[in-house]
């Protein structure tokens, strides 16, 4: 079985671009707080979602809807509506994280396939088995904390499909539960769907360098020509012992294109490309590179697929992250 290529789409144009570039499956979200990439001008309304599903199905591909934030206290209506609208649009599966949303989806739309979002942070057998047995999830998106060997061990034991991240931003491995962002902005990433809400991000040019700020906090300072990082608290440079360093995470992107054979051998079902907040140019570039690499792997070809993805990688740097745990 070939590795399934699961690709991001923040807009209908990006969805078409992903499919045209060779995605097997595209995931997207509604234009509100119910998905973890809730940025202005991004995402799909109900009509666009149905049109996207129609386009994908016409090309024999699938669409998943991410409803993967956590409902606000006393206000579950947007999350219920998102599940109902996804089902009505003919979505192939929903990607969920919250227990209550999982419960609602299972009761109201038992026939709608459910995947467990990375936001649920289920990274061990006991946790995944709970979601599998209680909510009949068919696939788990594994957090970016596991080595290839650990992924293989999980695959052998959990009895459901696994999806792992293959390319994109690397967070400090708390997967959507960033308390620093909440502390700085007063907005919760888990309920609002943005770890650095655009409304709180600003840039200031002081002549020699550019300062990125989240709320009242300066996160970083970039000299002319120095690669920039996302304006998130985890990618901030903080001064300790008189030196400014990346304490949590450096501006670097995960890229597993060179270890696809290892991931396939580990029994992984699907590869996820991160980046619904990125442009359709990014989608086209990353998806077509991974399509070539997967096809080469299937042919048993030894020819290396030229990796040209550094230009779209954060900080122009790449890592295999936890898959190899090279820092140990």
């Amino acid at each position: 079985m070939s590795l399934e290529l699961v690709c991001p789409a923040g807009t209908p144009a990006a969805l078409r671009a992903a499919i045209d570039a060779g995605a097997d499956t595209v995931y997207c979200g509604f234009r509100d707080c119910t998905n973890a990439r809730n940025y202005p001008g991004l995402n799909f309304d109900v009509r666009e979602m149905a049109e996207g599903v129609e386009y994908a199905h016409r090309h024999g591909r699938k669409v998943l809807a991410a409803v993967n934030t956590f409902p606000r206290a006393g206000d579950p209506a947007p999350w219920h509506a998102a599940i109902d609208n996804a089902a009505a649009a003919g979505i192939d599966a929903v990607i969920l994280a919250d227990l209550g949303v999982l419960d609602y989806a299972q009761r109201r739309h038992p026939e709608l396939r459910r995947h467990l979002s990375v936001q649920a942070s289920a990274s061990n057998e006991l946790s995944i088995a709970f979601y599998r047995d209680r909510f009949d999830i068919k696939r788990v998106v594994l957090p970016r904390v596991l080595s290839v060997e650990q992924v293989a061990a999980l695959v052998r034991r959990i009895g459901i499909e696994t999806e792992v991240f293959a390319f994109g931003s690397v967070g400090p491995m708390s997967e959507g539960r960033c308390f620093l962002s909440s502390y700085i902005t007063g907005l919760s990433p888990t309920t609002e769907g943005a770890c650095a809400p655009a409304s709180h991000v600003s840039y200031r040019d002081d002549g020699a360098s550019t300062l990125s700020r989240l709320g009242d906090v300066t996160l970083n300072r970039f000299r002319q020509g120095e690669p920039a990082a996302y304006p998130t608290p985890c990618k901030g440079r903080y001064v300790t012992h008189g030196r400014a360093t990346y304490l949590f995470e450096e501006p670097v992107a995960l890229n597993a294109i060179d270890i696809l054979g290892d991931l396939k051998a580990a029994g992984v079902t699907a590869l996820k490309i991160e980046g619904r907040q990125r442009s359709r140019a990014y989608v086209t570039e990353v998806v077509s590179s991974f399509r070539k690499a997967i096809d080469a792997l299937e042919r048993g070809s030894n020819e290396a697929v030229a990796n040209k993805l550094a230009s779209v990688a954060e900080g122009q740097r790449e890592t295999t992250g936890a898959y190899r745990k090279g820092w140990r």
Binding site: P40, Y203, Q224, P251, G315, Q316
Partner: peptide, 26 residues
């Protein structure tokens, strides 16, 4: 071309409200 890539390499400069520039870009 990807705007984040242009931003990472500093080929474009964004100042002021990020909400506005992100909304326009998207």
């Amino acid at each position: 071309i990807d705007s984040d890539a242009l931003f990472f390499t500093r080929d474009i400069e964004i100042t002021g409200s990020t909400e506005v520039s992100v909304a326009v870009r998207n």
